[in-house]
């Protein structure tokens, strides 16, 4: 096994020793030139168009994002405004309801009072009428009693006479 590896090593060294490994020649400048041409070529067909594509896309995305942000801001503002309006309207409705309630209560109370007053007056009127009729009855009674007493007196006088 060792023999084998040594053999391999010497073989490799032999090949290297042929001097070909570091064989500099016109390949070097021509390769450099060729590489520069490749740079120019790729610059034209790879870097420029695709850089532009990437930049354009980044710009497009940035613009869209800005627009979307703006729209979001706008819609948020609108929502806030609507909410405020809603709150205002609710408050107004509440006020209207409350005022209507107090108004109705006032009306009810007024009418009750009026009715009570009417009742009282009627009662007083009735009482006065009763009083008057009572007095009239008493007067009639007195008259009757007087006439009766007169008759009694006449009868008595007649007897006497």
């Amino acid at each position: 096994m060792t023999y084998w590896t040594i053999l391999l090593a010497t073989k490799a060294v032999e090949k290297t020793a042929e001097g070909g490994l570091f064989d500099f020649d016109a390949t070097l400048p021509l390769m450099a030139l060729q590489f520069l041409v490749l740079v120019a070529l790729l610059n034209a067909v790879f870097y420029k168009p695709l850089n532009k594509s990437l930049d354009d896309r980044a710009e497009y995305i940035r613009q869209n994002l800005a627009q979307a942000k703006e729209r979001k801001q706008k819609s948020e503002n609108l929502a806030k405004q609507y909410e405020q309006e809603l709150r205002e309207v609710r408050r107004q409705a509440q006020e209207i309801i409350a005022s209507a309630q107090t108004e109705a209560q006032g009306i009810v109370a007024g009418q009750i009072k009026e009715a009570q007053q009417g009742l009282l007056a009627e009662r007083q009127k009735a009482a006065a009428e009763i009083e008057a009729q009572k007095a009239q009855a008493i007067l009639a009674l007195e008259a009757q009693a007087e006439s009766l007493s007169g008759q009694i007196v006449q009868k008595l006088l007649a007897n006497v006479a």
């Binding site: 016109a26 021509l30 390769m31």
Partner: peptide, 20 residues
Amino acid sequence: EVGKHFYWYLGPLRVHGQVF
């Protein structure tokens, strides 16, 4: 194959064909 080259000759210049 180490250190062997496939030479091309361009006038006085000698280049490694396999590399190109």
